[in-house]
Design a protein around this nucleic acid. Structure first.
Lengths: 132, 132
DNA sequence: ATAAGGCCTCCAGTCACTGGAAGGTCAAGG
DNA sequence: CCTTGACCTTCCAGTGACTGGAGGCCTTAT
């Protein structure tokens, strides 16, 4: 397969696949014309990466997961550890966003949103709201 | 004030303040020795930016908010629009994270996490779980 | 012969910093 | 007066994970 076909099949832009090759995530063959040639195994790997990425795993985590995937002697505990680390990262981001959302929603709620200049959002940013 | 003092007061690294100057967010004065000189007004602006950034506003949104903050003839509706756009971005990210978390937590839950190689996380990444 | 579309490489840009090198400035102590 | 150390300066490069574009080769169809 050429890059266009795997791109379509894996749901990844061709540019991204070239980038993955550049950073050593995949190693497609080359045809006599210089075109990358992909096998089914390459496609599987790319689809694996695409799914891992869509779950938010970093490229380095994907690299680790791929290595574990291809290591028949792996311990599932090692996989689980990577996934749990990532789950923790997701939870941390969610907590951060939740807190942002809470504060921001309060400010938005307090703002009249008309043509007058008075704006609790701006005063809230100029000085944090305290309990006083 | 020198940069170290405002850095301390605004809670922003000196590097970040220099960066903000480079992109035109603030324009400190210069002393004869070439050092940046900051006034109270500069400090206020930096604190404003720091709070907006901590709520997740992008630099460009901060630039807009600062301009509105300094425009006495602003309409609060304009401020509210920026904040609501950002609220929407936060909600979109939260939805994305929530979905990631849901799928990932299922996979983690299904994984024994012992020294055996069988791992639902890896099989789930190799082929998405379908309802079949 | 040519036109369209796919493929190639290389370079630059994104966002918001962050790290580090090389060097100038300032206040205090010896 | 000299040194030490803290503070400041600029400039360059790197982060993560791509993305866009220029310029050019390859293939297939008309």
């Amino acid at each position: 397969m050429n890059i266009g076909e795997v791109s379509e099949a894996a749901g990844l832009p061709a540019k991204t696949i070239r980038y993955y090759e550049e950073i050593g995530l995949i190693a497609p063959l080359r045809g006599g014309n210089g075109y990358r040639r992909f096998t089914e195994a390459h496609l599987h790997k790319l689809a694996f990466i695409a799914r891992a990425r869509s779950l938010g795993f970093s490229i380095e985590q994907c690299r680790t997961l791929l290595a574990l995937y291809e290591d028949r002697g792996r311990a599932s505990a090692d996989v689980k550890a990577v996934a749990q680390t990532h789950l923790g990262e997701i939870d941390a981001k969610m907590a951060e966003l939740t807190e942002m959302r809470r504060v921001l929603a309060d400010l938005v709620h307090a703002c009249a949103g008309d043509e007058r200049p008075d704006c609790p959002i701006l005063t809230g940013l100029a000085a944090p709201v305290t309990g006083d």
